[in-house]
């Protein structure tokens, strides 16, 4: 199949690829966003737990 012809979609290329392009873009962005948010929360929580553990440890010793 001719690639150019496929992309042209009988004159409807803009509408079709516009639709799928935006949908794909939004879904990829949302996916990345959500994964990043989880990882950020995970890191911050771990750091916080470590910090508090250290503070508590000092409190007991001192």
């Amino acid at each position: 199949m001719d690639i150019a012809e496929f992309l042209h979609m009988g004159g409807h290329g803009f509408y079709i690829w516009g639709s799928y392009g935006t949908a794909l873009f939004l879904m990829v962005i949302e996916g990345i966003w959500v994964f990043k948010r989880r990882n950020k929360a995970k890191k911050e929580l771990e750091r916080m737990e470590a910090d508090f553990a250290r503070v508590d440890g000092q409190g007991v010793n001192g």
Binding site: V34, L45, F52
Partner: peptide, 24 residues
Amino acid sequence: AYTIAVVLRRAQALILERKKVALW
């Protein structure tokens, strides 16, 4: 399938964020 994956991930993020607040 996409919705399930993304929503579960977001729910995980929320759990951790709330845990952080509670810990604080």
